[in-house]
Amino acid sequence: MILLLAFLLAGIGTYLIRLSGIMLLGGERELPEAVTKTLRLIAPAALAAIIANSLLLDGGQWREFGAWQIAALVAVGVALWKRSMGWTLVAGAGAFAVLILVGL
């Protein structure tokens, strides 16, 4: 079963990827400040990269401007205003549903 084999190999590799930083940098010694400063930028950079890839692109091509980007702008606005993950999701999903319903 080739699918099972693919999942197994990808699963083992992905687990080792998930473990890598925790094991290499997770010792008891204090990390130098330069390292911790770098680590703090990982989340915003990686999350933003995925946002751009899924919102502005679609399988490597430009995504046509419409409901996706408008609803995302609403979500960003609410996120900056409320500073809340829950409100951001509700506002973004609500805006997207309305935009789809009106046919954008």
């Binding site: 989340a43 915003p44 990686a46 946002i51 900056l80």
Partner: peptide
């Protein structure tokens, strides 16, 4: 997908370096 990541990233943005990192990544 983009919505979940917006909800994770944007409310947590605080420092200028984080904003620069995010904009550069985009």
């Amino acid at each position: 997908v983009p919505l979940m990541f917006v909800a994770l990233m944007v409310p947590a943005l605080r420092h200028r370096a984080e904003v620069v990192a995010a904009v550069t990544a985009i």
